[in-house]
Amino acid sequence: MIKVLVVEDTNSERELICDYLREGGYSVISACDGKDGLDKFEQSRPNVVITDLMMPEMSGLELCRAIKKSILGAVPVIACTAKKQDLDRFWGMKQGLDAYLTKPFTRNDIVQAVQSLSLGE
């Protein structure tokens, strides 16, 4: 089963993403900020990570860079963010993001992004 780590500081959005993924048949781990996300990433070794970009303690881009520097750096990282500007998307992809979703999102947006990045699993 494909394991997805969801890192989101807003409880309602984190739970919504987790619910969508569970309904899609994925195993889900969640974290409330980037530091917690990095700890859970190292412990659980997920197949895909979905992260918000604007979080306290450690931003989603900082989390992405830490993941990409790790020995598990090939794990895809998806941003799910309110930052909608083309420059934000460009900068995020330059920092190592594998996909960029903007809020508001749909169930299909989330599940299709994970599915497309985990096909090789």
Rank of each mutant, 00 (worst) to 15 (best):
M1T: 11
I2Q: 06
K3Y: 13
V4P: 06
V4L: 03
V4E: 03
V4Q: 04
V6I: 04
V6Q: 07
V6S: 07
E8W: 02
E8R: 02
D9H: 08
D9E: 12
T10A: 13
T10S: 12
N11C: 03
N11Y: 10
S12C: 02
S12G: 01
S12K: 08
E13G: 02
R14D: 07
E15N: 05
L16H: 02
I17L: 05
I17Q: 05
C18D: 02
D19G: 01
D19M: 09
D19K: 07
Y20L: 05
L21K: 03
R22F: 04
E23Q: 09
E23D: 11
E23C: 06
G25H: 08
S27W: 11
S27L: 14
V28S: 03
S30C: 11
S30V: 07
S30G: 09
S30L: 01
C32Y: 12
C32D: 15
D33F: 01
D33G: 04
G34A: 11
D36K: 04
G37I: 02
L38C: 09
L38W: 10
D39A: 15
K40P: 14
E42K: 15
S44P: 03
R45A: 14
R45P: 02
N47Q: 13
N47C: 13
I50S: 02
T51K: 15
T51W: 13
D52S: 08
L53K: 10
L53S: 11
M54T: 14
M54L: 13
P56R: 13
E57I: 14
M58T: 04
S59H: 05
S59V: 02
E62A: 14
E62R: 07
L63E: 07
L63G: 04
L63P: 05
C64K: 11
R65D: 08
A66W: 00
A66D: 01
I67T: 04
K68C: 14
K68A: 14
K68T: 11
I71S: 08
V75Y: 01
I78P: 03
I78V: 13
I78D: 00
C80Q: 06
K83Q: 14
K84Y: 00
K84L: 01
Q85I: 10
Q85V: 11
Q85S: 15
D86N: 12
L87N: 06
L87V: 03
R89Q: 14
R89E: 15
R89F: 10
F90V: 13
W91P: 00
G92H: 04
M93Y: 10
K94L: 10
G96Y: 01
D98V: 12
Y100N: 07
L101N: 04
T102L: 01
K103F: 11
P104C: 09
F105E: 10
R107L: 12
N108T: 15
D109F: 08
I110P: 05
I110Y: 03
V111D: 10
Q112M: 02
Q112N: 10
A113H: 05
V114T: 13
S116G: 00
S116M: 01
L117D: 00
S118E: 02
S118Q: 01
E121M: 06
E121L: 06
